[in-house]
């Protein structure tokens, strides 16, 4: 007997809708032929901005995006996403599981960073002195901000927001914003993709089942009965 229920008896669309990439051979992304046009005339980072924003970047946006991604690329093993991915490797997980662990960790970190940047994003969208973001807190931040300004200047890019003494994290969010990434979804994606290669590379540098070499007591936990 064929069972029937709400899914059988309700009228549903019979095709899945795609909004960014055309299905089939010779894919187009937001209307542009990927293989015959974008791959020939643009860089991967441009294709990424196209995917995320729906439009090709200007020269300045493209370079700013490259600089921001490069600044965001390194994430040492002290940071939770890299640490977690290294643990997956040590546990002998499949490469796909190491990668997935890294991606989840990076996505969670990105969510926290972007959530903490809500005030900055509002200010970037409508700058005013009253809502100005806080200044950088320490010398390391200032050095990093100077390096970011210099890297952008080397490509003839000046971002107005970076004239302020922003923290490193805020300055990089402001640079991504300049590149055209303005929504939490766009920014979180950029943060994840920027660090993913270094995170998995660090993870793969650890030995499979190297349990004895892993510092179990770092940081220390202390169990107490409820």
């Amino acid at each position: 007997m064929t069972r029937r229920g709400p899914i059988e008896d309700y009228a549903w669309p019979d095709r899945l809708r795609g909004h960014v990439v055309t299905p089939g051979p010779s894919p187009r992304m937001h209307g542009y032929a990927v293989e015959r046009d974008i791959a020939r005339h643009y860089r991967f980072s441009d294709a990424t901005l196209l995917a995320l924003t729906g439009e090709l970047p200007t020269e300045g946006q493209s370079h700013a995006f490259d600089v921001a991604l490069t600044f965001l690329a390194p994430l040492p093993v002290s940071d939770a996403p890299t640490h977690a991915a290294a643990l997956a490797r040590i546990c002998g997980s499949r490469p796909s599981a190491v990668l997935a662990t890294a991606a989840i960790g990076l996505a969670e970190r990105a969510r926290a960073i972007v959530a903490a940047s809500a005030g900055l994003l509002a200010w970037l969208a409508a700058p005013d002195d009253a809502g100005a973001p806080p200044a950088a807190a320490d010398d390391a931040n200032r050095e990093s901000l100077d390096a970011l300004r210099a890297a952008l200047a080397a490509r003839s890019i000046a971002i107005e927001a970076l004239a302020r003494p922003l923290s490193r994290a805020d300055a990089l969010i402001a640079t991504l914003f300049f590149a055209g990434l303005k929504t939490p979804e766009q920014l979180e994606t950029a943060l994840v993709m920027a660090s993913l290669p270094s995170v998995v590379a660090e993870a793969y540098s650890h030995g499979v089942t190297s349990f004895r070499e892993y510092p179990m007591q770092l940081p220390p936990f202390e169990y107490e009965d409820p």
């Binding site: 095709r15 960014v20 209307g31």
Partner: peptide
């Protein structure tokens, strides 16, 4: 799959 995104277009460099 029904594509409902932007129409076919050529980039400025193309």
């Amino acid at each position: 799959v029904e594509y409902v995104g932007k129409a076919e277009r050529a980039s400025p460099r193309m």
